[in-house]
């Protein structure tokens, strides 16, 4: 009984279809204006040689001095759990989480700094990472449940926004997106998975994903969520204009910090 939750995270994200609001296509331009005006107030009319880049990790780093999730082993674990989520999203059976995630990752990126770090681990460290990942994977699968194909799940969705004539670049990757943008009612739900316990940074990430999706498609998503595979805890928020304006403030704060250190 403890093993199965009555409602999976994905079902909770979808919610009751009859209670969904009509799709909001008006807010995106207002948010863009808020961002453009805010950036102009910080940078002015200068043209920068290299743009200021804001991503989810920038928002985390702003308030956190030490985040275990940002350490190299933490990053590897995060990447591997992300790969497993991608496999789950298309209904793949996973028998050996660590080996399967690693094979998928290598097949995708080839060699990089993180794969080299992983290769340098000794047998004990590698076994520890594998066990750790397996525990995270079990927590994730129990909470996630099956993702039906009719909910059009997409994984690792990249978003890129250029603002202030290219002076600022916003980058984001949403771990899982379900729902469609062709419906008359809001239907898109965003799901983020982290291998760290949930904190203030996770809330900022949730808001940032919602903001980025709104800027990219000009359609406000229905919900945004974050799930911790470390604790099994999930936070789900309905997206509204207030949540998005808070994210605009987060982004402007991050830009202000980066600008002040230049």
């Amino acid at each position: 009984m403890l093993d199965s939750s009555p409602v999976s995270v994905v079902e909770a994200l979808r919610g009751d279809r009859s209670k969904r609001p009509l799709i909001d296509i008006a807010s995106a331009s207002g948010l863009r204006s808020l961002l453009e005006d805010g950036i102009f107030a910080i940078i002015g009319a200068k043209t920068l040689d290299t743009p200021l880049v804001v991503r989810t990790s920038s928002l985390h780093q702003r308030f956190t001095t030490t985040d275990l999730g940002m350490s190299t082993p933490g990053r590897i674990r995060g990447v591997l759990i992300g790969q497993l989520l991608r496999l789950l999203s298309v209904g793949m059976s996973i028998d050996h989480p660590f080996d399967d995630a690693l094979t998928a990752w290598r097949g995708d990126v080839g060699v990089n700094e993180l794969t080299e770090h992983l290769d340098a681990l000794d047998d004990d460290e590698r076994a520890r990472l594998a066990t750790d990942l397996e525990a995270h994977f079990v927590t994730l699968t129990r909470a996630l449940g099956e993702i039906p194909a009719r909910w059009t799940p997409r994984s690792s969705v990249r978003i890129f926004q250029r603002l202030a004539g290219g002076n600022v670049v916003l980058r984001d990757v949403v771990d899982l997106m379900i729902g469609t943008s062709t419906s008359d009612v809001a239907s898109i739900a965003l799901f983020d998975v982290t291998t760290s316990p949930l904190g203030e940074g996770a809330e900022r990430s949730m808001r940032f994903h919602a903001l980025m999706h709104t800027l990219r498609t000009s359609l406000m998503p229905l919900r945004t969520s974050t799930f911790s595979s470390a604790t099994g805890e999930s936070w789900i928020r309905d997206v509204d204009y207030e949540l998005l304006t808070r994210s605009v403030e987060d982004v402007l704060g991050c830009i202000r910090d980066q600008w002040s250190t230049r």
Binding site: R86, L87, V90, D99, T103, G107, D108, S181, T182
Partner: peptide, 27 residues
């Protein structure tokens, strides 16, 4: 010749692409 998990990732990428193109075509 690709291993099973890589086929899974190929499926995920192709699903992303096809869903995106399907939404555009529905517009």
């Amino acid at each position: 010749s690709a291993p099973h998990p890589v086929i899974g990732l190929v499926t995920a990428e192709a699903v992303n692409w096809a869903t995106q193109l399907q939404e555009i075509s529905q517009w």
